[in-house]
Design a protein around this nucleic acid. Structure first.
Lengths: 112, 112
DNA sequence: CAAATATATTCCGATATAGGAATATGTCTG
DNA sequence: CAGACATATTCCTATATCGGAATATATTTG
């Protein structure tokens, strides 16, 4: 046997650095392919191919707008990864100043 | 060009399902190769090879004990992944009952 | 409709695996 | 030291990508 399809697994889908870069853009706002091309400076087919993989694993969604296709991230789809990560958090030690802003925010919310 | 080395990147290292299974065991306790083989039922060289990749990206550490080699997870090394994930958490909606136990724990800590 | 624009798809080649099989290496024990 | 035991390494093959180049497929516009 050989490689696994990156196309059927969220974990391997985000294993590819270029795909992570696309995700980082698409989480900020919905964008057309050419906007992404302008930002990342890769050939358009390269962008389109990576978008296809991301779409197949449901990490991004696609929407038609005339001759353009608008892509955006589906944040809920990252939940499984986040949940998988929790097995390590226990061991990170808990002093608050080590925590990122999100956790602090949650904590503040809890105080109310 | 072709594939990227999974061997130099934590994200792609955990993209391989078998490696995630090994991690899930080694985070629970330090283990020798044969113990892992007994659990996962793969050929020993397969286990050793995956361990090597995990060791190279620093996700697991190795320690000699006689003729055995004991491996364990280095949880801090998952921090970059966790941090990368935070960009999505913002969009997950914030009701507390959707949060996992870790966050609740942190929150409780904040209340004190 | 023809040209322009936006994007996807196909065909290609190079390469990095993953796993199997066999073997090498290191260590303990009688 | 010889054999057993634990693990790593090497060699091999099949295969799944990446990315490049060219092209196909919409869709809009003059």
């Amino acid at each position: 046997m050989a490689r696994l399809k990156t196309t059927h697994d969220i974990f391997s889908a985000i294993g590819e650095p270029k795909r992570r870069i696309l995700i980082e853009q698409l989480v900020l706002k919905e964008m057309a392919v050419n906007e992404l091309v302008d930002i990342v400076k890769w050939p358009q087919p390269v962008v389109s191919k990576h978008l296809r993989v991301l779409k197949q694993v449901r990490i991004v969604s696609e929407r038609k707008d005339g001759r353009r296709r608008l892509y955006k991230v589906q944040p809920e789809e990252f939940r499984p990864i986040q949940e998988w990560m929790h097995q390590f958090e226990k061991y990170w030690g808990g002093s608050l100043d080590q925590l990122d802003s999100y956790l602090v925010e949650i904590q503040e919310r809890g105080k109310k």
